[in-house]
Simulated scan of single mutants.
Amino acid sequence: MRDLLGAEWLKARSQSLLPFLVVGGVVLATVVVLGLVSQGAADVSAGHDTVSNVTDQAVRYWMTMHLFSSLFGAVFVTGEYSSHAISRSVLLGGGRGRLFTAKALAGTAMGVVLGLITAAAAAASPWIFLPAYGLRPEWTTTTWQVLPGVFAVTVLAAPWGVLVGWICRNQTVAVGLLAVLTMAFEPYLFDLVPAIGKFMLTIAFASLYLDGDPELLSVPAALAVVAAWFAAAWIIARRLLTTRDIT
Protein backbone atom coordinates (compact mmCIF):
# COMPACT_ATOMS: atom_id res chain seq x y z
CA MET A 1 0.00 0.00 0.00
CA ARG A 2 2.91 2.35 0.71
CA ASP A 3 4.14 2.10 -2.89
CA LEU A 4 0.62 2.71 -4.20
CA LEU A 5 0.22 5.76 -1.98
CA GLY A 6 3.57 7.06 -3.19
CA ALA A 7 2.53 6.60 -6.81
CA GLU A 8 -0.80 8.36 -6.28
CA TRP A 9 0.87 11.22 -4.43
CA LEU A 10 3.25 11.62 -7.36
CA LYS A 11 0.26 11.75 -9.72
CA ALA A 12 -1.46 14.29 -7.48
CA ARG A 13 1.39 16.75 -7.37
CA SER A 14 2.15 16.24 -11.07
CA GLN A 15 -1.33 17.18 -12.26
CA SER A 16 -0.91 19.56 -15.17
CA LEU A 17 -3.94 21.62 -14.10
CA LEU A 18 -2.78 22.04 -10.49
CA PRO A 19 -0.79 25.28 -11.01
CA PHE A 20 -3.70 26.80 -12.95
CA LEU A 21 -6.15 25.86 -10.20
CA VAL A 22 -3.92 27.39 -7.53
CA VAL A 23 -3.39 30.59 -9.51
CA GLY A 24 -7.09 30.77 -10.39
CA GLY A 25 -8.06 30.35 -6.75
CA VAL A 26 -5.61 32.98 -5.56
CA VAL A 27 -6.72 35.47 -8.22
CA LEU A 28 -10.43 34.96 -7.45
CA ALA A 29 -9.89 35.22 -3.70
CA THR A 30 -7.78 38.36 -4.13
CA VAL A 31 -10.43 40.04 -6.28
CA VAL A 32 -13.19 39.13 -3.81
CA VAL A 33 -11.22 40.26 -0.77
CA LEU A 34 -10.18 43.52 -2.41
CA GLY A 35 -13.80 44.31 -3.17
CA LEU A 36 -14.86 43.51 0.38
CA VAL A 37 -12.05 45.54 1.94
CA SER A 38 -12.82 48.51 -0.33
CA GLN A 39 -16.48 48.45 0.64
CA GLY A 40 -15.60 47.77 4.27
CA ALA A 41 -13.28 50.78 4.42
CA ALA A 42 -16.07 52.98 3.12
CA ASP A 43 -18.46 51.54 5.69
CA VAL A 44 -15.95 52.08 8.50
CA SER A 45 -15.56 55.71 7.45
CA ALA A 46 -19.34 56.10 7.51
CA GLY A 47 -19.57 54.42 10.90
CA HIS A 48 -21.49 51.41 9.57
CA ASP A 49 -18.80 48.77 10.13
CA THR A 50 -15.79 48.00 12.31
CA VAL A 51 -12.17 47.39 11.40
CA SER A 52 -12.27 44.05 13.20
CA ASN A 53 -15.13 42.89 10.98
CA VAL A 54 -13.30 44.00 7.84
CA THR A 55 -10.26 42.08 9.10
CA ASP A 56 -12.40 38.97 9.55
CA GLN A 57 -13.83 39.34 6.06
CA ALA A 58 -10.36 39.67 4.54
CA VAL A 59 -9.51 36.30 6.11
CA ARG A 60 -12.90 34.60 5.67
CA TYR A 61 -13.30 35.04 1.94
CA TRP A 62 -10.21 33.06 1.12
CA MET A 63 -12.71 30.23 1.53
CA THR A 64 -13.25 30.64 -2.25
CA MET A 65 -10.19 28.40 -2.62
CA HIS A 66 -12.28 25.42 -1.57
CA LEU A 67 -13.94 25.39 -5.00
CA PHE A 68 -10.55 25.00 -6.68
CA SER A 69 -9.54 22.35 -4.17
CA SER A 70 -12.64 20.33 -5.05
CA LEU A 71 -11.94 20.79 -8.77
CA PHE A 72 -8.46 19.39 -8.23
CA GLY A 73 -9.94 16.31 -6.53
CA ALA A 74 -12.36 15.72 -9.41
CA VAL A 75 -9.68 16.13 -12.08
CA PHE A 76 -7.35 13.84 -10.11
CA VAL A 77 -9.78 10.96 -10.71
CA THR A 78 -11.50 11.83 -13.97
CA GLY A 79 -8.20 12.55 -15.67
CA GLU A 80 -7.42 8.84 -15.56
CA TYR A 81 -10.71 8.04 -17.25
CA SER A 82 -10.06 10.71 -19.88
CA SER A 83 -6.61 9.28 -20.65
CA HIS A 84 -7.88 5.68 -20.46
CA ALA A 85 -5.24 4.94 -17.82
CA ILE A 86 -7.72 3.87 -15.16
CA SER A 87 -7.60 0.14 -16.06
CA ARG A 88 -3.84 0.11 -15.74
CA SER A 89 -4.01 1.98 -12.45
CA VAL A 90 -6.44 -0.60 -11.04
CA LEU A 91 -4.24 -3.44 -12.22
CA LEU A 92 -1.01 -1.99 -10.89
CA GLY A 93 -2.71 -0.85 -7.69
CA GLY A 94 -3.84 -4.33 -6.78
CA GLY A 95 -7.58 -3.80 -7.13
CA ARG A 96 -10.31 -1.23 -7.26
CA GLY A 97 -10.71 -0.91 -3.50
CA ARG A 98 -7.01 -0.24 -2.94
CA LEU A 99 -6.92 2.38 -5.68
CA PHE A 100 -10.09 4.00 -4.32
CA THR A 101 -8.54 4.36 -0.86
CA ALA A 102 -5.17 5.50 -2.18
CA LYS A 103 -6.70 8.26 -4.30
CA ALA A 104 -8.80 9.44 -1.36
CA LEU A 105 -5.69 9.68 0.84
CA ALA A 106 -3.53 11.31 -1.82
CA GLY A 107 -6.31 13.77 -2.65
CA THR A 108 -6.67 14.64 1.03
CA ALA A 109 -2.91 15.15 1.33
CA MET A 110 -3.01 17.61 -1.56
CA GLY A 111 -5.98 19.26 0.13
CA VAL A 112 -3.77 19.84 3.17
CA VAL A 113 -1.14 21.46 0.95
CA LEU A 114 -3.76 23.70 -0.65
CA GLY A 115 -5.20 24.42 2.79
CA LEU A 116 -1.83 25.55 4.10
CA ILE A 117 -1.30 27.82 1.09
CA THR A 118 -4.78 29.26 1.59
CA ALA A 119 -4.37 29.74 5.34
CA ALA A 120 -1.05 31.52 4.85
CA ALA A 121 -2.54 33.84 2.22
CA ALA A 122 -5.62 34.46 4.37
CA ALA A 123 -3.52 35.31 7.42
CA ALA A 124 -1.41 37.76 5.43
CA SER A 125 -4.36 39.27 3.58
CA PRO A 126 -5.48 41.89 6.18
CA TRP A 127 -1.93 43.17 6.55
CA ILE A 128 -1.56 43.53 2.79
CA PHE A 129 -4.93 44.99 1.81
CA LEU A 130 -6.28 46.99 4.75
CA PRO A 131 -3.36 49.46 5.01
CA ALA A 132 -3.95 50.42 1.35
CA TYR A 133 -7.30 51.85 2.53
CA GLY A 134 -5.92 53.54 5.60
CA LEU A 135 -6.98 50.79 8.02
CA ARG A 136 -4.87 48.96 10.58
CA PRO A 137 -5.98 45.32 10.92
CA GLU A 138 -7.58 44.29 14.21
CA TRP A 139 -6.93 40.58 14.73
CA THR A 140 -9.41 39.24 17.28
CA THR A 141 -10.47 35.92 18.79
CA THR A 142 -13.06 35.62 16.02
CA THR A 143 -10.34 36.00 13.40
CA TRP A 144 -8.42 33.14 15.01
CA GLN A 145 -11.59 31.03 14.76
CA VAL A 146 -12.26 31.96 11.13
CA LEU A 147 -8.76 31.05 9.95
CA PRO A 148 -8.86 27.31 10.84
CA GLY A 149 -12.34 27.15 9.31
CA VAL A 150 -10.97 28.43 6.00
CA PHE A 151 -8.18 25.87 6.22
CA ALA A 152 -10.60 23.05 7.05
CA VAL A 153 -13.00 23.65 4.14
CA THR A 154 -10.10 23.85 1.68
CA VAL A 155 -8.75 20.53 2.94
CA LEU A 156 -12.14 18.79 2.97
CA ALA A 157 -13.03 20.00 -0.51
CA ALA A 158 -10.25 17.95 -2.12
CA PRO A 159 -11.47 14.47 -1.05
CA TRP A 160 -15.02 15.63 -1.78
CA GLY A 161 -13.91 16.35 -5.35
CA VAL A 162 -12.27 12.92 -5.50
CA LEU A 163 -15.55 11.25 -4.55
CA VAL A 164 -17.50 13.31 -7.09
CA GLY A 165 -14.91 12.32 -9.68
CA TRP A 166 -15.44 8.63 -8.96
CA ILE A 167 -19.20 9.07 -9.21
CA CYS A 168 -19.23 11.12 -12.43
CA ARG A 169 -16.16 9.67 -14.20
CA ASN A 170 -16.46 12.32 -16.92
CA GLN A 171 -14.23 15.34 -16.27
CA THR A 172 -16.53 17.93 -17.81
CA VAL A 173 -19.53 16.62 -15.90
CA ALA A 174 -17.68 16.46 -12.58
CA VAL A 175 -16.17 19.95 -12.90
CA GLY A 176 -19.45 21.44 -14.09
CA LEU A 177 -21.42 19.78 -11.31
CA LEU A 178 -19.06 21.04 -8.60
CA ALA A 179 -19.05 24.57 -10.03
CA VAL A 180 -22.85 24.74 -10.31
CA LEU A 181 -23.48 23.26 -6.86
CA THR A 182 -20.89 25.44 -5.14
CA MET A 183 -21.52 28.77 -6.86
CA ALA A 184 -25.19 28.62 -7.81
CA PHE A 185 -27.56 25.87 -6.73
CA GLU A 186 -26.69 25.49 -3.05
CA PRO A 187 -26.33 29.23 -2.27
CA TYR A 188 -29.57 30.02 -4.11
CA LEU A 189 -31.38 27.18 -2.37
CA PHE A 190 -30.19 28.56 0.97
CA ASP A 191 -31.43 32.03 0.05
CA LEU A 192 -34.82 30.69 -1.01
CA VAL A 193 -35.37 27.98 1.62
CA PRO A 194 -32.84 28.35 4.46
CA ALA A 195 -34.37 25.50 6.45
CA ILE A 196 -33.37 23.09 3.67
CA GLY A 197 -30.40 24.91 2.15
CA LYS A 198 -28.43 24.94 5.40
CA PHE A 199 -28.03 21.19 5.08
CA MET A 200 -26.23 21.45 1.73
CA LEU A 201 -22.50 20.78 1.85
CA THR A 202 -21.36 24.21 0.63
CA ILE A 203 -23.59 25.91 3.19
CA ALA A 204 -22.42 23.59 5.97
CA PHE A 205 -18.89 24.62 5.04
CA ALA A 206 -19.95 28.25 5.61
CA SER A 207 -20.71 27.38 9.23
CA LEU A 208 -17.14 26.14 9.68
CA TYR A 209 -15.57 29.46 8.66
CA LEU A 210 -18.15 31.40 10.71
CA ASP A 211 -19.95 33.14 7.89
CA GLY A 212 -22.22 34.73 10.48
CA ASP A 213 -25.63 34.17 8.90
CA PRO A 214 -28.07 33.43 11.74
CA GLU A 215 -29.80 30.78 9.59
CA LEU A 216 -26.65 28.64 9.46
CA LEU A 217 -26.14 25.50 11.51
CA SER A 218 -23.92 25.54 14.57
CA VAL A 219 -20.37 24.32 13.99
CA PRO A 220 -20.95 20.88 15.62
CA ALA A 221 -24.15 20.38 13.62
CA ALA A 222 -22.40 21.48 10.43
CA LEU A 223 -19.61 18.97 11.06
CA ALA A 224 -22.22 16.23 11.41
CA VAL A 225 -23.82 17.28 8.11
CA VAL A 226 -20.43 17.33 6.36
CA ALA A 227 -19.70 13.85 7.72
CA ALA A 228 -23.07 12.61 6.44
CA TRP A 229 -22.44 13.98 2.95
CA PHE A 230 -19.00 12.37 2.86
CA ALA A 231 -20.32 9.04 4.11
CA ALA A 232 -23.08 9.00 1.48
CA ALA A 233 -20.71 9.98 -1.34
CA TRP A 234 -18.14 7.41 -0.18
CA ILE A 235 -20.71 4.60 -0.24
CA ILE A 236 -22.09 5.61 -3.65
CA ALA A 237 -18.67 6.14 -5.22
CA ARG A 238 -17.25 2.86 -3.97
CA ARG A 239 -20.38 0.97 -4.98
CA LEU A 240 -20.28 2.39 -8.50
CA LEU A 241 -16.55 1.67 -8.83
CA THR A 242 -16.93 -1.96 -7.81
CA THR A 243 -20.04 -2.68 -9.89
CA ARG A 244 -19.47 -0.79 -13.14
CA ASP A 245 -16.94 -1.48 -15.88
CA ILE A 246 -13.89 0.70 -15.39
CA THR A 247 -13.19 1.35 -19.05
Rank of each mutant, 00 (worst) to 15 (best):
E186Q: 11
V153P: 04
A121S: 15
L156M: 15
A104K: 04
R96K: 13
T182I: 07
G165I: 04
A74R: 01
F100P: 00
V180T: 15
G79W: 02
G111P: 04
G94N: 08
F151H: 09
H84F: 09
T141D: 15
L177W: 03
G111A: 09
W160D: 09
A120E: 10
R88L: 13
S82D: 05
M183Y: 10
L189F: 01
P148L: 09
G94I: 12
A152I: 09
V146D: 10
R169L: 08
V155E: 11
P137N: 07
G97C: 09
G97H: 12
G94L: 13
L177P: 03
L91Q: 14
S82Y: 01
S83C: 01
G149Q: 15
V164K: 01
G161L: 06
V193W: 07
L135Q: 05
Y81M: 05
S82K: 07
E186K: 00
A174L: 11
M200G: 02
S83H: 04
I128V: 13
T78M: 00
L135I: 04
L130V: 07
A179R: 03
L71R: 01
I128H: 01
A85G: 06
V146I: 14
L130G: 06
G111T: 06
W166L: 10
G161C: 05
L177R: 06
A119Y: 00
L92Q: 15
T182L: 01
C168S: 14
V164W: 12
I128W: 06
T202K: 02
T202Y: 00
V146E: 08
F72Y: 05
V112N: 11
K198W: 02
L181E: 10
L181A: 10
V173N: 03
G115H: 05
L181S: 01
T172K: 06
T141R: 14
M183A: 15
T140M: 10
G165R: 08
L105W: 07
I117G: 12
V173K: 02
V193T: 07
T141Y: 07
L201W: 02
L181W: 06
V193C: 06
A106F: 03
L201M: 02
L163E: 07
A119L: 07
W127C: 12
L147F: 08
Y81L: 02
F100D: 05
L99A: 10
G165C: 08
W166I: 11
I167C: 11
L92K: 10
I167P: 09
P187M: 00
G73A: 01
A158V: 12
A123N: 11
V162R: 14
A122V: 09
T118N: 08
F190W: 03
W144K: 15
L181T: 08
Y133A: 02
L91E: 14
Y133L: 08
P137L: 11
V155Q: 12
V175I: 13
G73F: 00
G73S: 01
T182W: 01
L114P: 12
Y81K: 02
T143M: 05
W166S: 11
A152W: 05
A174M: 12
Q145K: 15
F100M: 05
G73P: 00
N170P: 03
P148V: 13
M200A: 14
H84Q: 12
A120Q: 14
V193A: 10
A121Q: 14
S70K: 00
V155W: 13
P187W: 06
V175D: 07
W160E: 12
F76A: 01
T141E: 12
G165Q: 10
G73R: 02
